Simulated scan of single mutants.
Amino acid sequence: MLYLVPTPIGNLKDITLRALEVLKEVDLILAEDTRTTSHLLNHYQIQKSLTPYHQHNEHKIVQHLVSQLQEGRTMAVVTDAGTPGISDPAFLLVRECVRHGIKVECLPGATAFVPALVNSGIPTNRFVFEGFLPPKKGRQTMLKQLAQEERTIILYESPMRLVRTLGDLREFFGDDRHASVSRELTKLFEENKRGTLAELETYFTEKGVKGEIVLIIAGAEKPGRKTEYLDNEN
């Protein structure tokens, strides 16, 4: 049995009772960073064996993990924050478990893009999640494609690249496309900054950026249709 267990994206209280129960009961926890997961487990007084499982070793150990699962061991996959498999390791192991008839269960829980989307003030009825933009190869091609996307667009970004990405989006989407930048979600200094791409680029260029970023961008307008947005300084 393999469990995918979401972990808090900031505030340690944002974990479900069921998630804590699973983490206590499994034989082994696969952790993206054992130091981060140890902090969470220690907070809830859970003592459990941890094995590193991340993008640099998942291809090497996946068959070994499948063999252990076939022998009857139960495992939980956790990442540093949020739901495993969403721009984080898990897909490869889940796919192999499905191929080998091993039961997989994903618990509901924290995912950064959901609160960022809901409080953005940008339409939530239809959206597309693109994760991180390619840093180099294929970046312009994707931006050209996304510029025509009519659904709300969700991106993840690092604080070091946010200003560059906002500039690239301005180039392909136009200065006046509305967007929202959420950072430090669920933490003490959470910020949700809304405005046009031009306004957001200016703001974060002057202020600087800290924390993990979720970027919500309004979809392209259909001819003859105009969506009203409310800017918010908070």
Results as ranks from 00 to 15, higher is better:
222 K>H: 14
84 P>H: 08
234 N>C: 09
65 L>G: 06
124 T>Y: 00
224 G>N: 09
31 A>M: 08
221 E>H: 12
37 T>F: 06
92 L>M: 09
171 E>R: 14
57 N>T: 06
68 Q>Y: 04
81 A>F: 00
170 R>E: 14
60 K>G: 11
174 G>D: 06
119 N>H: 12
126 R>E: 12
192 N>M: 13
125 N>W: 06
67 S>E: 14
229 Y>T: 09
53 Y>M: 09
143 L>F: 07
119 N>A: 13
46 I>K: 01
49 S>H: 10
121 G>M: 05
232 N>F: 13
71 E>K: 15
101 G>P: 05
119 N>C: 12
162 L>W: 03
90 A>R: 07
72 G>M: 11
64 H>Y: 11
79 T>E: 00
227 T>W: 07
231 D>V: 14
63 Q>F: 13
203 Y>S: 07
95 R>G: 00
38 S>A: 14
131 G>A: 07
93 L>S: 05
204 F>H: 11
224 G>T: 09
97 C>Q: 02
13 K>M: 11
213 I>L: 04
108 P>S: 07
126 R>K: 13
14 D>M: 04
34 T>A: 03
58 E>P: 11
151 R>I: 03
212 E>Y: 01
158 S>D: 03
108 P>V: 05
210 K>Y: 08
151 R>Q: 14
95 R>Y: 06
155 L>A: 08
129 F>Q: 02
40 L>H: 06
164 R>W: 00
3 Y>E: 03
133 L>H: 01
28 L>V: 15
69 L>F: 08
33 D>R: 00
2 L>I: 11
50 L>Q: 04
72 G>Y: 09
163 V>N: 00
162 L>E: 01
23 L>A: 05
125 N>V: 11
193 K>I: 15
15 I>S: 09
225 R>Q: 14
80 D>G: 13
202 T>D: 13
46 I>F: 05
222 K>V: 09
31 A>I: 08
